[in-house]
């Protein structure tokens, strides 16, 4: 495989050069696959006017791990595209919510399957698609629908991203990724949808060839930067007591 190493020494190096105005996909669903260390580095890096794509802006729970909501609080975000832009429990308030209500950040609330398919479409070279999700709801107001075989569908556009920040279980020097269990979630489709794919890796980076090609979830040709996560307390390793 490639002669230039994809392995970088630090999270700060991994997020270097992410430009203001970038669209960034954040992997993860609850704890598994969430790139907490890269998100922390992006908070230090300071890129502004970001469009942040992820399942949620981050929940109301404490202790908090770095999430899109913290980037909002840090003044780095122009817009979020998420399937949750409010707290699941009506009595809770997301850290993101006051910023949204004051109009300091924009948001697009998207059905989760539509979010996944918009990323998949971007990674598959498909510009748009029709889905039954959201038909007849507030989300469809003023938007293009079409009746196909007697059923109404809503037009949705692909969601290409500049950068994906992901967390996986194993990677080899060629950039091939393996996720473990529910950690896979948005990882492979965000990698496909993004131009620059940056991954924090739980196990030490393996030599190329150590992951059987049949076992690769995301091929290394999609991945540009890998950083091994050092042990706590030098890096964020969520514990069972935390959920997002």
């Amino acid at each position: 495989m490639g002669k230039r190493s994809k392995v970088v020494a630090s999270f700060d190096e991994a997020v270097a050069g992410i430009a203001d105005g970038s669209t960034i996909a954040f992997g993860g669903f609850a704890l598994p696959g969430s790139p907490f260390n890269l998100t922390a580095a992006l908070l230090r890096q300071g890129a502004k006017r970001l469009v942040c794509v992820g399942n949620t802006t981050g929940g109301p729970r404490k202790p908090r791990n770095p999430d899109i909501g913290m980037l909002v609080e840090n003044g780095q975000v122009a817009k979020v595209i998420c399937s949750f832009t409010a707290a699941p429990r009506a009595s809770d308030v997301l850290p993101f919510t006051p910023y949204y209500e004051r109009g300091e950040v924009d948001a697009e609330t998207v059905p989760q399957g539509t979010l996944a398919e918009r990323l998949r479409a971007a990674g598959a070279g498909v510009p748009a698609f029709y889905t039954p999700a959201g038909v007849g709801t507030q989300l469809a107001e003023g938007r293009e629908t079409r009746v196909i075989n007697g059923r109404e569908y809503l037009l949705e556009y692909a969601l290409p991203c500049d950068v994906a920040l992901l967390r996986c279980y194993q990677a080899d020097e060629a950039g091939n990724l393996r996720f473990r269990r529910a950690q896979r979630n948005f990882g492979p489709i965000m990698a496909m949808a993004s131009k620059l794919v940056i991954v924090e890796v739980e196990e030490p980076i393996l030599p190329a060839g150590a992951i059987d090609p049949d076992e690769v979830h995301t091929p290394g040709i999609l991945v540009q930067r890998l950083v091994h996560i050092p042990p706590a307390p030098d890096a964020i390793w969520p514990t069972l007591k935390e959920t997002r």
Binding site: S83, F84, T85, A86, A87, P88, A90, L94, F96, T97, Y100, E101, A107, T109, V110, P111, Q112, G113, T114, T131, P132, A133, G134, V135, T137, Q138, L139
Partner: peptide, 20 residues
């Protein structure tokens, strides 16, 4: 997915699931 007066929403997978 949306309570009265809220600007944001809690869709998750509910719209995809409900439709399909």
């Amino acid at each position: 997915w949306k309570v009265k007066g809220a600007k944001g929403g809690v869709i998750g997978g509910a719209m995809d699931l409900a439709a399909c």
